[in-house]
Design a protein around this nucleic acid. Structure first.
Lengths: 332, 332
DNA sequence: GAACAATCTGTAACCGGTTACAGGTTAGCT
DNA sequence: AGCTAACCTGTAACCGGTTACAGATTGTTC
């Protein structure tokens, strides 16, 4: 691989001049400029990003930290991040934190040593303290954790209300909730949305809320218990789509027909929900758009552009598929 | 951030000495060693990876190029790669190629400029020519493309035979195949496995094979046509699980009961197959193990260890779930 | 034609590390 | 004591770029 020195020698100029034509700054005579460009072409020279980074402290790399790429919500997010970074000539590094602060901190450390220009973090466990002294730009995605860190998320509270409202509208008489983990902010918002819709209803009791961990298996088991304890539940709002699939499985195991006997509404709008039978009715977030927004926001911060707002809330949308519909209860 | 110079000054030694204790090479007196370590601790010094890389030409980063992380097969692979790289103090960069040579080449270019130490590539379109002159280690994953590039994949041919055999064993009388794209090597192997099992059977005709593109929608449509043309098909071996879900959907649309009237066997063993109803019977590849093996192999190559073999074929396994079982046909 | 600004180019310091080389010290052996 | 080998440490070159600074040339203005 040729270096800038080779080019300089070939074009009979100094490295400074070559650097000037490369970066298009400073004065350089048109003739020498062309001479240099010619040499660059002839030698197929490509500047060494690393050497550049060392001096400029800009790596054109960002880190994306997610809990687990295996969770189908995150690939869609990651894809958006990749598309945007790529379009802007950045690259990104993917890190799985498994929701462990230690892993998060470790990754942040490692990446900072590599001079990454910024972070997009999906976290529930990291707090501002851990980021102290880090002057690298950070954007929080999906989960807002600290007031002075810009955050991109969906309207979880409203979405939850939308879900319960829909279940109510189609005639459900007893609506339960399989909640996400308490330590996750968006799960709290969704739970609150549910509670604010049903807390004053006569059918409500606290044990209509069961805790899931945003994963399938656990939600399935919790739902089995729930449905055994309350056989008259005819609607469930589930904290996310992955758990909703678990709920679907639970119903199947108990020979409860969805949506005839039980209506289910999920949350997220991941592709997985389209592949189940019945397909999942859900509250869809604009996942790709959120990922893209977060990335663009981060780039703006990196490039020193002023950030107007610190909170970007995306609207959610009810997507009606097959797991919730006006059921037998109504026609009775 | 303190530099090695700060440490040197603080410990009253030269940078060379500090470097020596850091890298544990060359002679350094025990007393000075401790003095230096103390300074490192006191200043909370962390060596700058970048500066190191510039000289050593080793970045402790590798690139993983996959067609599309949104395809549920790849997150499981990516997770394995991440776990292994992370354990060995490497980081990895994820790239989506969308199966386009141009994107692949571009990524390889970009990453080489960043001094990545190696590549893991899942590709069908890249050939050796494109890698020419690249002395960076490369491992091919899931799809073998050139003889002199080490390759980790599953036993696709045998898996296909296993699938067809299973369909045969449970009593299917007319077995079709929804194939993956022709340009993908593993799809060819699976097709061949199918053909070698059925080509001499009386029920066989060439139009029992339809082409899919490894995605859901396309497979669904192709299957609808297939099943309309051959209503007596009672078994389908599908080239991958994602398409198998499409086949499931097709059957549902046509009101064909799975597995009572039609048995379906997929390929891959991704988690998605567990979430459908009926859950997918499939030929499972050890996806995580394959990813881990490829990564370990790459690291060995990077570290100059000799590579014994150039082809690692992993065994596959029939996972019986619900989409294939002894059907009505038998009991009639 | 003198003064000054704008244009052009090269030298050298710098980013933050690694390491070849040289010089000095100490220990071991005859 | 003299010689060699092992031990210890610092200087400076190097990785491949960027840029402050200075000096030279040209152009403009009065």
């Amino acid at each position: 691989m040729p270096t800038i020195k080779d080019v300089a020698k070939h074009a009979n100029v100094s490295v400074a001049t070559v650097s000037r034509v490369l970066n298009e700054n400073g004065y350089v005579n048109e003739d020498t400029r062309e001479k240099v460009l010619e040499s660059i072409n002839k030698l197929d020279y490509q500047p060494n990003e690393l050497a550049r980074t060392l001096y400029t402290r800009r790596s054109r790399m960002i880190g994306l930290i997610v809990p687990d790429i295996t969770n189908p919500f995150f690939p869609e997010l990651a894809r958006a991040v990749e598309d945007v970074t790529n379009a802007k000539n950045y690259t990104f590094i993917l890190c799985n934190s498994d929701d462990q602060v230690l892993k998060e901190k470790n990754y942040i450390d490692v990446l900072r040593k590599k001079y990454v220009d910024g972070f997009i973090i999906v976290t529930s466990t990291l707090t501002n303290d851990h980021l102290e002294g880090i002057n690298t730009p950070v954007v929080a995605l999906d989960r807002n954790f600290e007031p002075d860190i810009p955050c991109v998320s969906a309207d979880n509270y409203h979405g939850a209300k939308l879900a319960v409202e829909h279940l109510h509208n189609i005639g459900c008489k007893k609506i339960a909730h399989v909640a996400g983990p308490e330590f996750v902010m968006n799960a709290q918002h969704r739970l609150r949305g549910y509670l604010d819709m049903v807390a004053d209803k006569p059918f409500f009791s606290e044990d209509l809320v069961v805790n899931g961990d945003y994963h399938l298996q656990n939600a399935k088991e919790a739902t089995m218990n729930l449905l055994k304890a309350h056989p008259d539940i005819d609607g469930i709002f589930v904290g996310n789509d992955l758990m909703a699939v678990g709920v679907l499985k639970a119903a199947e195991t108990l020979a409860i027909k969805v949506p005839d006997q039980l209506s289910i509404v999920g949350f997220d709008g991941i592709t997985l929900g389209e592949t189940t039978s019945p397909a999942l009715t859900t509250i869809a977030q604009p996942i790709y758009d959120m990922g893209a927004k977060a990335t663009n926001l981060l780039m703006d911060m990196i490039e020193g552009k002023p950030v107007e707002e610190t909170e970007y809330t995306f609207p959610v949308q009810l997507v009606e598929r097959e797991s919730a519909k006006k059921g037998m209860m109504l026609s009775e």
